[in-house]
Simulated scan of single mutants.
Amino acid sequence: MATPAQTPVAAVRLPLRPDLAGLTPYGAPQLDVPVLLNVNENPYPPSEAVVADITAAVADAARGLNRYPDRDFPRLRSELAEYLQVESGVSLAPEQVWAANGSNEVMLHLLQAFGGPGRTVLSFAPTYSMYPEYARDTLTGWVAGRREPDFTVDVDHAREQIAAHRPAVILLASPNNPTGTALPLQTVEAICAAAATGGPAAEDGAATAAVVVVDEAYGEFRRAGTPSALALLDRHPHLAVARTMSKAFGMAGLRLGYLAAAPALVDHLRVVRLPYHLSALTQAAALAALSHRDELMAQVASLRAERDALVTWLREHGLRVADSDANFVLFGVFDDRRAVWDGLLARGVLIREVGPEGWLRVSVGTPAETAAFRAALEEVLCW
């Protein structure tokens, strides 16, 4: 009996969305070199005590893997709220906290809930390069206003952009990636005020608020006297403040991001999240890591000091350096930044070629890694 002719595999054409044609996946270079200072990781691995507690917690959770995890993970939300109160002095209820697989998924939930076709997300460039991809993936329009020469956001310009575009979501990275710039609370508050009636019109024509998202992925590294936008939550129900365990906690491999907002805003995110999106193993590991927060956060002070010393050193050598409240430093300006990047790589140091033309970004590493970066840069620039 003859079998039906099959179409050759090479002839099959997949119905890819037209706007995705020719695009490549996001990602920083992953190269095997001695000094990795390109993706803003915490350079200190967890201690054996932390590893042991995470291992025990995951093993215990594994005994129940035949059951689905808790969809709304109240214990984890409660522990995250308690941590934020200690870290920022802001009291939050567990119902004000939401978590997902990295702050990337948190941002995706926000745009799934509030963005979409016919809507716009507004940010201010230069900023995190994933933001326009979140917009693209949720079929949300992307608009980038400008930052000032010192990488701050001008309030009048922000008001103009809000009035012109009526965005559904406004993304404010603070500290900003790749510049390290933190926004003053007065700037965030002014944008929240403009956004309160600055969103897209509702179906009945009534004004809505644009959701203002302050992305504080690097918030724990902010300098003394730089407050968190968490302090504004009680006055702005359309404000959300995002955090992550990837940076200060040194848990990039855990993939746990979270945000704080009004309970009503959080409830909208629960609608769009996939069922059981946060695995039982992730929840267990995150809870175990949070129980060691004092030990893990103790590294933050040393990383801040290392950052400030690096900023001073670069400036003493005549380079421009953006003020940084993060665990990385943006420096320049070079006529051929690729040549500098290549020269460092040839000497075993990987940093990031990102940001405005002529600038480079280096993550803060251990003292030994920072010393290796300095030595390599001295050779490349013939100091």
Rank of each mutant, 00 (worst) to 15 (best):
S174T: 08
G225S: 08
G332M: 07
A182M: 01
P149W: 14
R223V: 00
N38D: 12
Q6E: 14
P149Q: 07
A93P: 01
Q283Y: 00
P69A: 09
T197P: 05
T244S: 15
S363N: 12
R13W: 00
A11L: 07
L92W: 09
G355M: 11
A372V: 01
Q112Y: 12
H268M: 09
E295M: 02
L183H: 11
D204C: 05
L381K: 07
V39F: 07
R71I: 00
V121K: 01
L269R: 03
T244F: 01
P46L: 02
L319T: 03
S91I: 02
D335L: 04
A173Q: 10
T181P: 00
D294M: 01
G225I: 05
V50P: 10
T187L: 08
D53K: 06
T244P: 01
V340C: 09
R77A: 11
A190D: 02
L183N: 12
G358H: 06
G358W: 00
E378C: 07
A62N: 06
V380Y: 14
D156H: 08
A285H: 06
L259V: 05
T370M: 13
A195C: 09
S302Y: 03
C382M: 04
A164N: 09
G115N: 09
V354W: 04
L269M: 04
R77N: 10
P263A: 07
D308L: 08
L256H: 13
R270G: 12
R337H: 05
G145F: 13
A57Q: 14
L350K: 15
R338Y: 10
L80V: 07
D204Q: 04
H157S: 10
R347M: 04
P94A: 07
A202W: 01
L360M: 09
A62V: 00
L122V: 02
Q161Y: 04
S123N: 12
V362M: 05
G198W: 10
L281E: 15
L185I: 08
E379T: 09
A322H: 10
P94K: 03
W313A: 12
L20H: 13
L76V: 07
H238Q: 08
L303R: 15
L281A: 14
P117C: 03
T138L: 02
H109S: 02
L265N: 10
L350W: 03
D215F: 08
E148H: 05
V12G: 10
A59W: 03
L360A: 12
G257S: 10
A173Y: 04
S291D: 15
A196K: 14
E353G: 03
Y83H: 13
W313F: 03
A11P: 00
D267Q: 15
V39A: 14
P237N: 14
R75L: 08
N104T: 06
G205S: 05
Y83F: 14
L185Q: 14
L239S: 04
N38G: 09
S302E: 14
Q6N: 07
G343C: 04
C382G: 05
I54F: 01
G102C: 03
R119L: 12
A372T: 04
A194H: 05
Q283W: 00
